[in-house]
C-alpha cells in the first residue's frame, strides 16, 4: 500500500509533465485589421470559404465555420449551404492561386491576387453575405524526431458591398510531443488552429 501511495503521485506527475511538454505555439501574424480600429459588425452574415480544393483547406474551413456557428454573434452560413449554392464547391473550386513566397506579400501583407479576388467576389455575389472569410494552409511540415506537426494558416476577411480586404492573418500553428505514449495527431493541430483563428476574429467583433 505504501508503494502504491508513492507510485500514484509520481505517475500523475509524469502524466502532467507530458501534457505540458506536448505544447503548441504560434509564430507569424495574428488576425489583424488593415485599418486601425476596424471592428466586424455583430449580427452580420459571414461565409467561411476554403482557399483551395485540397482536403486540408476544406477540413480547416469546416472546423472554423462550425466553431463560429457555436460562438454565435455572427450569422455564419453553413458549409453545406455554400456547397448547395456554389456548383462544384469545395472539391473542384480553387480560389487562392498564389503562395506566401510571393514577393508582393512582403510589401502588402493583406495581398490577394486579382484573380483570387475576382473569384471570391463572384462567389459572394451568389452567397450575398456581408463578409467572406477565406482560409487556407500555405504549408505543412511534419518532423518525426520530436513528433512535431506544424501548419501555416493564412486568412483574409473581405467586407461587402465595398469588396475590400479588411483583415488578414498568417500564422504557424504547431504541436509537438516528446513522449511516444502521447503522439501528436493532425486533428489536434487543425482544432487548435481553428480555435486560435476564431478567438482572434471574435476579439474584433463589436
Amino acid at each position: 500500500m505504501f508503494t502504491v501511495k508513492k507510485i500514484l503521485p509520481f505517475f500523475a506527475f509524469i502524466c502532467l509533465s507530458v501534457v505540458f511538454i506536448s505544447c503548441s505555439t504560434n509564430k507569424g501574424k495574428k488576425f489583424t485589421p488593415v485599418d486601425e480600429g476596424f471592428l466586424i459588425e455583430s449580427g452580420k452574415s459571414i461565409a467561411v470559404l476554403s482557399g483551395t480544393n485540397g482536403d486540408n483547406d476544406i477540413n480547416l474551413a469546416e472546423l472554423i465555420s462550425e466553431r463560429m456557428i457555436i460562438e454565435g454573434r455572427l450569422k455564419v452560413m453553413p458549409q453545406a449551404e455554400i456547397s448547395r449554392r456554389i456548383p462544384r464547391y469545395p472539391l473542384n473550386v480553387n480560389l487562392i492561386d498564389f503562395s506566401y513566397n510571393d514577393k508582393r506579400i512582403k510589401n502588402n501583407p493583406s495581398y490577394l491576387s486579382d484573380t483570387s479576388k475576382a473569384g471570391i467576389d463572384a462567389v459572394q455575389k451568389i452567397l450575398k453575405t456581408d463578409y467572406i472569410l477565406i482560409v487556407w494552409i500555405d504549408s505543412l511540415s511534419s518532423l518525426p524526431y520530436n513528433d512535431q506537426r506544424a501548419m501555416n494558416v493564412a486568412s483574409r476577411l473581405i467586407s461587402y458591398p465595398a469588396a475590400k480586404v479588411v483583415a488578414y492573418s498568417f500564422r504557424w500553428n504547431e504541436k509537438h510531443s516528446y513522449c511516444c505514449l502521447f503522439p501528436v495527431k493532425w486533428i489536434g493541430v487543425f482544432e487548435n488552429a481553428s480555435i486560435d483563428l476564431t478567438e482572434e476574429i471574435y476579439k474584433n467583433v463589436k
Partner: peptide
C-alpha cells in the same frame, strides 16, 4: 466535360495522414 475532377474517395485525408 469537367473530367478529370475531384470525386470524394474512400479515405479521410488530414495533414499528411
Amino acid at each position: 466535360g469537367t473530367y478529370p475532377e475531384r470525386i470524394r474517395g474512400p479515405y479521410k485525408h488530414l495533414g499528411d495522414e
